[in-house]
């Protein structure tokens, strides 16, 4: 269901929710955000809970950095803690660290909700049709999206060719030395590829100043307005709950 929603409606909601997660420094709000985003993905988009947990891992690792920094490097609070005889777990530094930790996951889950339920092509078409994103930038984004799998395929071919010279199959993941050695050829490939794409688009009539039609741009429906209204109502409720509590 989330997949069928207008990408710009989802973008506005997700941006608003991420902004709130940054501004509302409260662990309960971050937790509510994580739960709502995860539930929306599981219930409305039938995303596997295991995938959601897996997606949380990188954000959790990132957030763990905030947590440890907050707990271990708050020199000024250390003396106060000892005087007051408080444990680290009850300290303000720890609760701040937990909030930061949860905030990283909350922002990550909101981003994941958007990324998992939005067709990038539809987003760019909507941006060009409704928010007047210049087609040159829009189609550059299309090309950039194409470049990622192309770079991966190119890297695989280069690795195969080098493995052949070494006389053994390539390893699944390249080591650091091999990674560094791939940088220059891949950079050269990306530059060549970008130049060709620019020429191809020009050949097919893409001009910066000419009017153009955007076909199949997503249109706003009643369900999009309902989604936006419900999402903002939920956001307002969460903020009020935190403020009251």
């Amino acid at each position: 269901m989330l997949t069928a929603l207008h990408p710009l409606g989802k973008l506005v909601v997700c941006m608003a929710w991420i902004a709130a997660a940054i501004l509302v420094f409260d662990a309960r709000f971050q937790l509510a955000t994580i739960v709502i985003a995860s539930l929306a993905l599981v219930v409305l988009d039938r995303t596997s809970p295991i995938l959601i947990l897996a997606l949380m891992v990188p954000f959790a690792l990132f957030g763990f950095g905030f947590l440890t920094t907050s707990v271990l490097f708050r020199q000024d609070s250390d003396f106060a803690l000892r005087i007051a005889g408080e444990s680290v777990l009850n300290s303000p530094a720890f609760s701040a660290g937990v909030t930061l930790f949860l905030r990283a996951i909350a922002c990550g889950m909101v981003s994941a909700l958007f990324a998992l339920t939005t067709d990038p092509g539809a987003l760019i078409r909507a941006l060009m049709a409704q928010w007047r994103l210049p087609p040159r930038i829009g189609y550059s984004l299309f090309s950039a999206m194409q470049l990622v799998p192309d770079l991966a395929a190119e890297a695989q071919q280069i690795r195969l060719a080098r493995a052949m010279k070494r006389g053994r199959p390539p390893r699944r993941f390249p080591g650091p030395v091999e990674l560094v050695s791939l940088v220059i050829p891949l950079l050269a490939f990306a530059i060549r590829r970008a130049g060709r794409a620019a020429i191809a688009m020009e050949t097919r009539g893409l001009a910066p100043d000419a009017p153009r039609t955007v076909v199949s741009a997503p249109r706003l429906h009643g369900r999009d307005l309902a989604f936006i209204a419900i999402a903002f109502a939920a956001l307002a409720l969460c903020i009020s709950w935190v403020r009251m509590g």
């Binding site: 092509g121 078409r125 189609y139 299309f142 090309s143 999206m145 194409q146 470049l147 192309d150 590829r193 060709r196 794409a197 020429i199 191809a200 688009m201 050949t203 097919r204 009539g205 893409l206 001009a207 000419a210 009017p211 153009r212 039609t213 955007v214 076909v215 199949s216």
Partner: peptide, 30 residues
């Protein structure tokens, strides 16, 4: 090389691209 012609969109968007650039009406393009 087809990669010189295509921009990484869906098949129908690729075919429509040059026609969109001519600002033809959407139903004609489709």
């Amino acid at each position: 090389d087809a990669d010189q012609t295509l921009c990484g969109m869906r098949v129908e968007d690729e075919i429509a691209f040059a026609l969109e650039n001519r600002a033809l009406p959407e139903d004609v393009i489709l």
